[in-house]
Design a binder for these strands. Structure first.
Lengths: 118, 118
DNA sequence: GGGGTAGTACTACGTCCCGTAGAGAGGTGA
DNA sequence: TCACCTCTCTACGGGACGTAGTACTACCCC
């Protein structure tokens, strides 16, 4: 999986936060702080859909974009990808488990327990 | 943390696999399949130490390079970094737990249990 | 002691990604 | 018809990375 640039991530964040598919214009309106040209937003949306992060459907002349996967799925995939990198997955996992904070360890524990029960 | 390119990662892999600090020449000899110029290896080693992935110490005229952190630590850090990206860490962690394979879930479970006991 | 060898530092070039945006085409509503 | 919206296409500058040459220095062997 390819990574995301900074602007790309900002835009993904907007789309992940929104439940409905947005047009380029709508997205642009939500990044006002950066004062981008409309075409900039369109270009980035286009690249993101080329890269498979977004899907788009027609709405009149405009496209409406929405995430192809949830942010959680993306994050989990990044984590798995990092894990792929090591020769010793167990060691890395152990280290990871030690690094997460207490409350998160709790979440993990719970998720794993539920898995076990299925 | 900055990411690693492909050659950079190959070289880190060599150094992670080795226990002793290596010189550029030694590293170069271990990537024979790519037939790189010696200076190429040196440049990459230099960049890696600039980026903080390697530390180096003098050995006569030459430098000896060794990883600043273990591969496991690096991988765990990458995973945490991915986790930082989400607004809902719990959801991402849950998804991650569901995505790891059975034996790895077991490792995680064990690591978490040991944590708890301390 | 002179030439090959090894090692260093510095510089450079091509490519790809990404942020950024303009130009031009074609529809749309006043 | 004219202003406007949206799209697609093209482009440029910067930074990271793969790759390597050059110039200089120190050491070893004959």
């Amino acid at each position: 999986m390819k990574g995301l640039g900074e602007l790309e991530r900002s835009i993904m964040d907007i789309l992940w936060a929104e439940n409905a598919p947005l047009t380029a214009r709508e997205v642009g309106r939500m990044i006002e702080d950066r004062d981008l040209a409309p075409t900039t937003v369109m270009t980035v949306l286009d690249r993101l859909s080329r890269k498979g992060f977004l899907t788009r459907t027609r709405d009149g002349r405009a496209w409406r974009y929405q995430p192809a996967a949830s942010r959680d799925a993306y994050v989990a995939e990044l984590m798995l990808e990092a894990l792929e990198m090591t020769g010793d997955r167990d060691a890395a996992l152990t280290r990871f488990a030690q690094a997460v904070s207490g409350s998160e360890a709790e979440i993990l524990r719970k998720a794993l327990t539920e898995l076990e029960e299925e």
